[in-house]
């Protein structure tokens, strides 16, 4: 128990450092904020005019949860970016030579991502409200929706931590995540309904946890059409989107918390 408390205390020291970064170098946060705002506006007004109301919902309202999901997933990459930078600058060596709890750097990093993501969601929610997005359910359901987004992003942070430690440079990390995270968030029900996807792509999209996350939040916020109008999904993953998303969260954490921690222990810059 003492070890856990120690790790949390050290983790909070590291998290504080990362939050100072965000204050001093707001570019990163502004980047993660501006693009979703731009996405909301572009998709809402450019595609929105061409895409018929999916499941009988106003497209703009339907879209916002998808952008929430994409944005918090990108928010989870800040950890990897930061660790790759720390590797390159040799700061990880300094941390590793200190008598701090070993996983503290990873705990601190991943939890400061949660803080950034809360901030991002707040700003996106405001933008969403401005273009017509509404929460049409109860407060507990809405809270659950936000919690699910944050939880999924938290798991992504751990996966990104591993990748960041592995590639060691922010440039390599950036191109790698661009090549993976973008397709993963696009081949899903994030921006357009998947019913008309070509077969292979539809299977991928059906079982893509991003789809289940987006659908779950849509349902929890009430951004889906009335029961009669919504076509029932065939895939189990989309029939039980909350459960399926949680399974993925558990899987990602079970795999990446240990491998990222192991990679950290062996990490040496250059």
């Amino acid at each position: 128990m003492n070890a856990v408390l120690g790790a949390l205390a050290d983790g909070s020291v590291v998290a504080k450092r990362n939050l100072i970064h965000i204050k001093r170098v707001p570019d990163l946060l502004i980047g993660t904020l501006i693009s979703p705002i731009m996405f909301i506006l572009l998709f809402a007004y450019v595609f929105g005019s061409a895409i018929p109301a999916p499941d009988g919902v106003n497209y703009r309202e339907w879209l916002v949860p998808g952008i929430f999901a994409q944005t918090v997933i990108f928010g989870g990459t800040i950890t990897g970016m930061g660790l790759a930078t720390d590797m390159q600058k040799g700061i990880i060596d300094r941390f590793r030579s200190l008598p701090m709890a070993q996983p503290a750097v990873l705990i601190g990093r991943t939890s400061s991502d949660v803080v950034t993501n809360i901030l991002t969601i707040a700003i996106m929610a405001a933008t969403g409200l401005a273009v017509g997005w509404r929460i049409r359910t109860s407060i507990p359901e809405a809270v659950l929706g936000f919690a699910l987004l944050l939880l999924f992003a938290y798991a992504v942070s751990w996966a990104m931590a591993y990748i960041g430690l592995l590639v060691r440079t922010p440039e390599a990390f950036q191109s790698l995540t661009f090549l993976t995270v973008f397709p993963v968030t696009f081949i899903a029900n994030t921006f357009v309904p998947i019913d008309n996807f070509p077969t292979v792509l539809k299977v991928v999209a059906d079982w893509n946890p991003v789809s289940s996350l987006v659908l779950a939040t849509r349902e929890l916020f009430g951004n889906v059409g009335p029961a009669g109008l919504v076509r029932a999904p065939e895939a189990w993953s989309l029939q039980h989107p909350v459960a399926y998303t949680l399974i993925w969260v558990a899987l990602i954490l079970l795999v990446f918390v240990p491998v990222a921690s192991r990679q950290y222990k062996r990490a040496t810059s250059r």
Binding site: R17, I20, H21, R24, V25, K89, G90, I91, D93, R94, S97, S269
Partner: peptide, 13 residues
């Protein structure tokens, strides 16, 4: 105490 070959200083702090 360790001071490595490349100054491990956090530039933003």
């Amino acid at each position: 105490g360790l001071s490595g070959q490349y100054a491990a200083v956090d530039e933003h702090l």
